[in-house]
């Protein structure tokens, strides 16, 4: 720890964590999509936090980019009272109003992760910012921070509340703000993993580069504020979620890797 802190004093950029070239363990034994294996990756620098509304606003201001949700009016939003895995279509929702105009904007949430953006929107941001999305393996290596377990701290899912903004209620019929946040939390509101990466689990599902099946299907990892122990407990280092590349959900965001 002291070693790391000393190093940090000489690093100009504190928003990225450097992962060195090497062999790393990923996956889980018998997992259909993500079997246990050792992989080799070249060094990369990954964002310590998810991309924020502030950062996305800078991109939009510079490029006048129009997101898929703004163009197609097809965003999927949440409000308490919905059955499990049910989302609402809201033509007013976009990154500026992640759950629709009636549920408020991001003016006072600029340090929250950007959401209600599609995979295509994330790619557009990356192109502008001269960064890229992490590969499945890069994301997983960063989330594990050296661990081979389902969670970076081990196998006990009950510790999730220390590290992640998730949904703690049994279902989504009533609001759950028991950890201080019903929707997103400001990035780095919870404890980081041992490599100093925040919100690798929970807060927002993070898009990864590449496709496992069809090209129209993209993938995101780490779970989100919506995910609960009861439904979609994907706030871990193993599982991989899927979504349509044009879909803009209010629990989807991304972090980036330096090119």
């Amino acid at each position: 720890m002291i070693f790391s802190l000393l190093i940090s004093l000489f690093l100009p950029d504190t928003s990225f964590v450097q992962v060195p070239t090497g062999n790393y363990w990923v996956g889980a034994k018998g997992h259909a999509l993500n079997p246990a294996r050792e992989v080799h990756v070249d060094a990369y620098a990954i964002g310590a936090t998810e991309v924020t509304n502030q950062q996305f606003a800078e991109f939009v201001a510079a490029t006048h980019y129009v997101t898929d949700a703004e163009r197609l009016h097809n965003a999927m939003v949440f409000e308490p009272g919905l059955k499990e895995f049910r989302w609402l279509e809201d033509s007013t929702a976009c990154w500026r109003y992640p759950n629709g105009v009636s549920r408020g904007g991001v003016d006072d949430k600029m340090q929250h992760p950007v959401t209600t953006i599609s995979y295509n929107d994330a790619q557009a941001y990356c192109e502008w910012a001269q960064v890229r999305l992490p590969s499945f393996e890069e994301w997983e290596i960063a989330s594990r921070a050296g661990a081979r377990t389902t969670y970076f701290w081990g196998e006990d899912s009950r510790k999730i509340g220390r590290y992640a903004n998730i949904w703690h209620a049994h279902d989504h019929l009533e609001p759950d703000g028991s950890d201080g946040y019903m929707y997103t939390a400001p990035v780095a509101s919870f404890q980081p993993n041992r490599w100093g990466l925040y919100d690798m689990y929970g807060n927002v599902f993070e898009f990864c580069e590449g496709h496992l099946k069809e090209e129209k299907t993209v993938h995101a990892r780490g779970g989100s504020w919506w995910c609960s122990q009861h439904s979609c407990h994907y706030f871990n280092s193993v599982d991989i979620g899927r979504v349509h590349r044009r879909a803009s959900f209010s629990n989807q965001g991304f972090r980036v890797v330096k090119k």
């Binding site: 450097q18 070239t21 090497g22 062999n23 050296g146 081979r148 196998e155 980081p192």
Partner: peptide, 23 residues
Amino acid sequence: LIAATLALLLPLATFAQDQNQEE
């Protein structure tokens, strides 16, 4: 956000990976 950015200089061979059983 802590000030430190961890510079991870050591590859897998020397990481103290958890020994817990995999799922």
